[in-house]
């Protein structure tokens, strides 16, 4: 099957063709961007699973005499691992903190994005598909959520549930669900009256089936992209909450918190904010590239263009 697919690729025919996993993998590996994003995600996975083993230093070990050392400074100990990314405002190794911080940041980013994405999408589809009172109710809830100050909401949850890691995820999900709800509703509204939904309805399909088979696939691509954008926003949002006394407290590392702590040193020690910022960016970028590649693979027409993309540019 694989060899068959390869011959078809070489023929570069315009007709959609069936593709096997082998081809897709091979194609992915030939695409430097995809390789890059897979690489970043693999590194993140390693950081998640084995932070203690791969980090060269204890992320909490301070040395005030070695604060704000620039990237590449050799270790103060004989034969020690160099501070590749420099040290932070308390002389802790920045790379080690970045590796340990991945765990908190990814859990918060992915957790709250999944939670808000699921709830928001479901509500948005219901509002757009059924319309009427239900739509009014859900959308006014959106209005309400958007008008209520974030800080006040965060303080309320802190007051009611107390600080903690899970509550951070909860607050962030609570604050962002309406983004998905509005996008899902808008798309559903536009599709609700289209001929193919009408046809599905006439032929006696249940609402649930119509939503699952006909609506969701058409909503998937913007929502998945939105999801990858939200992850970056939520990792940054975690920093704001930590600042208020939620969840992660200093000196525990998280990317958001590291950026927040480097705030006063932007002009004198740029690496304190730049590297955690870069980590968030690379995470969002890799997830985004992977998501749009997977999206391309799952869609016959896009797949065609994606499979051909690299080839066309070559002489």
């Amino acid at each position: 099957m694989t060899s068959e697919a390869v011959t078809r690729l070489d023929s570069a025919s315009e007709a959609p063709r069936s593709v096997g996993i082998g081809l897709i993998l091979r194609r992915l590996l030939r695409d430097p961007v995809a390789v890059f994003s897979l690489l970043v995600l693999t590194l993140l996975l390693i950081a998640l699973l084995a932070a203690g083993q791969v980090a060269p230093y204890d992320p909490l070990r301070q040395n005030l005499r070695l604060r704000n050392l620039p990237p590449g400074t050799p270790s103060a100990d004989e034969g020690g691992f160099p501070h590749i990314l420099g040290t932070d405002e308390l002389g802790r190794d920045l790379l080690s903190r970045l590796i340990h911080g991945a765990r908190v940041s990814l859990a918060v980013g992915l957790g709250s994005a999944l939670l808000s994405g699921t709830a928001g999408t479901a509500l948005g589809i219901v509002a757009g598909y059924y319309g009427g009172r239900l739509d009014d109710l859900i959308m006014r809830l959106v209005d309400l959520q958007m008008s209520f100050p974030f800080l006040l909401l965060a303080l309320l949850v802190l007051y009611a549930l107390g600080p903690g890691f899970v509550n951070v995820i909860l607050v962030l999900a609570l604050v962002r669900w309406m983004v998905y709800a509005r996008v899902a509703r808008g798309l559903t509204l536009a599709m609700r009256t289209s001929p193919f939904i009408d046809a599905a309805r006439v032929t006696g399909n249940s609402d649930l089936r119509i939503i699952r088979r006909h609506l969701l696939p058409n909503l998937a691509s913007p929502l998945v992209i939105l999801f990858t954008l939200e992850i970056a926003a939520l990792i940054l949002g975690e920093a704001a909450l930590s600042y208020l006394g939620f969840g992660v407290q200093k000196p525990e590392p998280s990317w958001g918190l590291m950026i927040e702590a480097g705030k006063s040193y932007v002009s004198t020690a740029w690496w304190l904010t730049t590297f955690p910022g870069l980590a968030i960016f690379l995470t969002a970028l890799s997830l985004n590239l992977l998501a749009s590649s997977l999206r391309a693979i799952s869609d016959p027409v896009q797949r065609e263009r994606w499979l051909n993309a690299g080839l066309k540019e070559r002489p």
């Binding site: 301070q62 200093k250 000196p251």
Partner: peptide
């Protein structure tokens, strides 16, 4: 208290350490 003086975050963490 947050921002009570410049360097409070660092000072507090240094004392704790």
């Amino acid at each position: 208290r947050i921002a009570v003086m410049p360097g409070i975050d660092e000072t507090l963490q240094a004392v704790a350490s």
